[in-house]
Amino acid sequence: MSGASVLFDAPGPKARRLSLILSIVALVLIIAGAVWVVLTLAAPRESGGITLPGMFDGTRWNIFTDPEVWTFILEGVVATLQAAALAAVGAIALGIVLSLLRSSRIAWVRMPTAVVIEFFRGMPVLLMMLFILLVASTGAFWAVVIALILYNGTLIGEILRAGLVALPRGQREAALSVGMREFQSKMLVEFPRRSGRCCRSSSRSSWCC
């Protein structure tokens, strides 16, 4: 269905009033909840007989006046961006290779690729990071990058493959009939022409791991 509007008529005065009342009630509840949370956190805390200052007390926040804290945070941000950039490039490259291998005509190429994809897709990326860290002892940064490449590469590979499968058969048949080899058809016709829709889903879904 193109929109939910087919399911019901345009709201009349009663429905509009109900909607308005619900909006106001919800807004009041949300604001009240937020105020309560802030007040509860701001209140001084009792812990084992000692009274500690509230969460918004200056003594809890003055750590941020220390420049060393900021350099530490900045280092973390830079490392995150580096890991994400490396993993993004690697995962897209791996995804392209896997999608081509997985849709190969040759069974002994296609089958092992399917097994590898299922293996990496089916386990938590945290476990993969731990595996690479402990078994290959690469250091934490490269363990994260490699695990993200493997995990997101398989996801992107499957998304790209779905785009290849959705392509009309005629494209491939036409490429083969003008004398292209299998590989030429894949690289020059099918892959560039695969449905562009798959790119949107890959930009969001795969990076949340």
């Binding site: 399911l7 019901f8 509009r16 909607s19 619900l22």
Partner: peptide, 12 residues
């Protein structure tokens, strides 16, 4: 809620 006739529910 997402497909309901009440606008407030859809927004929420």
């Amino acid at each position: 809620m997402r497909i309901s006739p009440v606008g407030a529910l859809r927004g929420f």
